[in-house]
Design a protein around this nucleic acid. Structure first.
Lengths: 348, 348
DNA sequence: GACGTCATTGTGAGCGCTAACAATTCATGC
DNA sequence: GCATGAATTGTTAGCGCTCACAATGACGTC
């Protein structure tokens, strides 16, 4: 049973014990037909006996396949990237691939380059880059790599194939929802300038306002963090009573900061100012008040990007679906519901 | 420059171009001494010329090293596991290792077994299991695997080497803080029974109360989610005025739910009931009110567990530090500060 | 009963690399 | 100028596996 040589057993060892050739062992392991049942049983028994496991490297050498994909990401402790990562791994595993991740603090050209090099040394067959910053995508585009690369969240048409959620649509949903609730205009707290998603959300917000003939008010900018939302919220509080009744915040964490700042300034949400976020992090439902927000289907993102990457690796024509952006969904909660006087309905 | 054969170039190809033997190329790549500068330059040039990269599998086959570690985790979208994962990968990369992750939804014996099998097929040299559930650790203990396994968050003394934060201490800090603020007793909303960390936190809470001669009140239990905290919070609200003035909640997400439930019940925090959480997620500082909580040093956890795993892989004697639990830190904010009438001080 | 056919098993080569050893070159001292 | 050893380079042999092909056996057909 247990087996404690210095060297783990090889296929030849198993073959010897089973009284067959190493090739027959390989066939059994490879589920080939044309192996007699009795032979297969003998081999399986010998494998069990010796605790044999196929050597990954030898196999990979001759098949030229490592069945490993790489992922480059940043801010992986945030809900969005973490969810994408999870979905990516799950989808890859379903296809029999292993996923090696490199989590960077910042996606500078140098760091991205190092990450790709590191993954390349690890024999990955392809890479998914969760690269929402434009600078990261540019880095990716100019880097030479011996394997296909797919981006996530980099927006459409960047020269590198990628999968995206329709951020513009999400912003239109959020902004439109606030306008429909009777607000004359909607303010916007945007994400960092370098982020494609921030740009797309801001563009969707602006487009929605312009469509109904409203001039977009001043845009504030944060860095996605609750703290930056808090600071922006303090500024926003100063505009209450001067036309500010609704804010579309580019993510939920900043919205949390905004809510706190408004609360501290004595501004009531949603009675005085309605707030809508983006992401639907698990906490949003329990904010004070529960936050209206836009939900993205990260599982779909993961599945699609793995499918796309595998198409590229296998040399298949990518299916048409990979180009189409994934539709986000508006989740309405108390923070944008003007006719409640309490702090929101209980959770579902 | 660019190079677009069907087969990527091999060491022999480079050697031919450089007019040396493949072994010399290997030496250059391996940074061996005893290679003449001129020769090294020629080889480097040829490598650049052909866009050559060493074949990972061939290298791994002969060196018997894949320099890849595996991680098994669950709930990787939560702050704690995500932070641990990040720290693990960063520490491993610093040592030149790649990290392959398997993220499970639930750590059942079958799933853990499959995950280890999957990683094993991928040639990992060792595995870190983020296995806070006791059932997961038991699964790990009974499984045979051809590589060392290290646990994180499984508590001390489980037969498998592991790294832990001192949860008991964290709970004592939290409970002690509330008692010191003048509360007669402290209630506890615990995490799931099967989680070692939940058990340890509950034990630390109980020990602190017993030390000052207070009989621990009824323990409530949640599943870490804000929703479960909300439900528990509704129950807790019923005890206000009957001896409940302070609650130690086993994590921040549940604390968020508790805060909402109390607010909806007209109970003020911290004036009527003080609340302390655990984890210090980035959002806690902006809760209503900002949450007092216990911070864990995930980076230290990551570094230590990688160091321990590498010791095991290399056959070194693990350094003594690996057995010692990492000390958590109390972070005091408005939710436990009884002498403020507003909703808390502005963030730092 | 010889022969073809198919299922089953075995043999040999080689994937691309590193390690061990062998061979060569080079500098140095006398 | 030549021995001597060190520095540098080349040669050979696998690592453990899969692939292509060869060999064997079983079985039915005429």
């Amino acid at each position: 049973m247990a087996q404690s040589q210095l060297r783990p057993p090889t296929m030849a060892d198993v073959a010897r014990l089973a009284g067959v050739s190493h090739q027959t062992v390989s066939r059994v392991l490879g589920d080939h037909p044309n192996v007699r049942d009795r032979t297969r049983a003998k081999v399986l028994h010998a494998i069990e006996e010796m605790g044999y496991r196929r050597n990954f490297s030898a196999r990979a050498l001759v098949t030229r396949r490592t069945r490993t994909l790489g992922v480059v990401a940043s801010d992986t402790t945030l809900y969005g990237p973490a969810s994408t990562l999870f979905a990516l791994e799950e989808a890859a595993r379903a296809e029999g691939y292993l996923v090696s991740t490199v989590s960077l603090r910042r996606l500078t050209v140098d760091k991205v380059s190092e990450a790709l090099e590191h993954l390349s040394q690890g024999g990955v067959e392809g890479v998914v880059a969760i690269a929402p910053q434009r600078s990261a995508v540019e880095a990716l585009a100019e880097l030479r790599h011996p394997f296909p690369v797919v981006t996530v969240g980099s927006g459409p048409s960047v020269g590198i194939p990628g999968v995206n959620v329709d951020q513009h649509l999400g912003a239109r949903l959020a902004t439109g929802h606030l306008l429909a609730a009777g607000h004359r205009t909607v303010w916007h707290l945007a994400g960092p300038e370098d982020w494609q998603e921030a740009t797309d959300r801001a563009a969707g917000w602006r487009a929605t306002l312009e469509k109904v003939g409203v001039a977009p008010p001043l845009t504030l900018r944060g860095d996605w963090s609750p703290l930056s939302g808090y600071r922006a919220g303090q500024e926003l509080a100063g505009w209450v009573g001067r036309g500010l009744t609704a804010v579309f915040v580019a993510n939920d964490q900043m919205a949390l900061g905004v809510l706190r700042a408004l609360r501290e300034a004595g501004v009531r949400t949603p009675q005085d100012v309605a707030v809508v976020g983006f992401d639907d992090i698990p906490e949003s439902e329990f904010f004070a008040p529960p936050l209206t927000t836009v939900r993205q289907d990260f599982a779909a993102v993961g599945k699609r990007s793995i499918a796309l990457l595998l198409d590229l690796i296998e040399g298949r024509e990518p299916s048409g679906a990979s180009g189409i952006a994934i539709e986000p969904q508006l989740v309405v909660r108390a923070s944008s519901f003007p006719y409640t006087s309490d702090q929101g309905a209980p959770p579902a």
